[in-house]
């Protein structure tokens, strides 16, 4: 990530704390050079290349269509290793993690749309981590349901470890 972009993002973070609080996704990356923060609104996420996953899980019926960018797209500028870990936090401070290997192996997305509609934070929105569970039998394991945090508000990764 270049310096100019970092300044912009830091500025954004300082100027619009309320936006961060309510309806955006915070990406926090710690490298040797320090910690960089980028905020994505739902519109910004949808402006990235979007993918559809048709699947079901513990909280959605089979055949539900989820739309959003791939998780790894958000980390294209970061030299992620397969053994790195993404730490996820939801609006209710639920915490979970995703091994980076999985975002390469299964192409999970940050869903912004559920059956074409934005998701309310009174439901599972605004963002929901979605794995293509219906396409991979091994993803039926309960542990993968835990990976798919809803009301997602923050993703952290520390690549210095």
């Amino acid at each position: 990530m270049n310096t100019a972009f970092r300044i912009v993002s830091l500025t954004l973070a300082l100027l619009t704390p309320a936006a961060a609080l309510a309806q955006s996704l915070e990406i926090r990356v710690t490298t040797e050079e320090g910690t960089e923060v980028v905020e994505y609104t739902a519109d910004e996420l949808l402006a990235l290349e979007s993918f559809e996953i048709v699947t079901g899980n513990d909280y959605a019926d089979e055949g539900t269509v989820f739309t959003g960018p791939r998780i790894r797209t958000l980390f294209e500028d970061v030299a992620l290793e397969r053994d790195d870990t993404l730490y996820l936090t939801a609006l209710d401070d639920f915490k979970t993690f995703i091994p980076v290997a999985e975002i390469f192996d299964y192409d999970g997305i940050i869903a912004v749309l559920r059956d074409g509609e934005r998701m309310s934070r009174r439901g599972k929105g605004p963002f929901w981590v979605i794995y293509p569970m219906s396409d991979y039998p091994e993803l039926q394991e309960p542990i993968f349901n835990d990976r798919q945090a809803w009301q997602l508000s923050q993703i952290k990764v520390d690549v210095t470890q």
Partner: peptide, 22 residues
């Protein structure tokens, strides 16, 4: 405190109510 903080917690409580209903 920003009123939006209150609104966020209100919505999340509502989400939790929805989950209990489901």
């Amino acid at each position: 405190i920003d009123p939006e903080e209150v609104q966020l917690r209100f919505d999340i409580l509502w989400a939790r109510y929805n989950l209990s209903e489901e």
